[in-house]
């Protein structure tokens, strides 16, 4: 064996060790993912149902359990993807379109009739609202309502997020959910979308 070839030996071993270490790190990151639970525990569901709304029905406090779970419905891609599926399963698009509104109000413009807090959105879906929003209390479980609310909130988000639901199979006709679609509308134009709302939400 020539000296040149035998000189490569330690380098090879070093490279192999580097690749192996990178693979180990990748596997470890893969194992760190959020454990998936297809059905929420009944006590957790019951606690999630106990939102405390203001008497006006606008805004309020989420239940303690929501913070104990680390606010999953606004922050995990899985829950937001489930919300996106629920959005199409329960035909939200028949009134709200792909977020641009229609018979129902728009989400994309970030103009929340009952405030931008997730509790208001949960209450709107669960209990319904005047002028046509039906209650979904009997058709969806409370954790599904939370998932859908997290997704709906992201449609009209003011700030960009690091998590996003799965992309559309169809053509995308509006900014992606994690790109703060509403902020775009507020920043732009000589004539704002909602002049009464001021320069920013």
């Amino acid at each position: 064996m020539s000296p040149a070839v035998s000189g490569k030996g330690p380098v090879r071993i070093f490279e192999v060790c580097c690749v192996a270490a990178l693979l180990a790190v990748a596997v470890a990151i893969g194992l760190l993912r959020v454990p998936r639970q297809y059905r929420t525990d009944p006590p957790v569901s019951a606690a999630l149902d106990a939102i405390r709304l203001m008497p006006s029905g606008i805004g309020g406090a989420p239940p303690e359990v929501y913070f104990a779970l680390n606010q999953p419905y606004e922050n995990t891609a899985y829950d937001m993807s489930q919300g996106k599926r629920l959005y199409s399963w329960f035909s939200c698009a028949s009134c709200h379109g792909e977020g641009e509104g229609g018979a129902g109000p728009s989400f994309l413009d970030g103009w929340w009739l009952y405030g931008p807090s997730i509790v208001s959105i949960v209450a709107s879906i669960r209990d319904g609202r005047p002028h046509g929003m039906p209650p979904f209390r009997d058709r969806m479980t409370i954790d599904e309502i939370w998932q859908l609310s997290g997704y709906v909130k992201s449609i009209g988000a003011y700030s960009a997020k690091t998590t996003a639901p799965g992309r559309n199979d169809d053509r995308q006709n509006r900014p992606a959910e994690n790109r703060s679609p509403a902020a775009l509308l507020f920043n732009e134009g000589p004539s704002p979308v909602h002049p009464e709302q001021g320069p920013s939400p």
């Binding site: 297809y38 059905r39 399963w89 329960f90 058709r139």
Partner: peptide, 16 residues
């Protein structure tokens, strides 16, 4: 009662 646990990812939602 629970389509998503039996066949995760399918398009039937759980209705309470």
């Amino acid at each position: 009662a629970d389509p998503q646990t039996l066949k995760p990812g399918n398009n039937m939602p759980l209705v309470p």
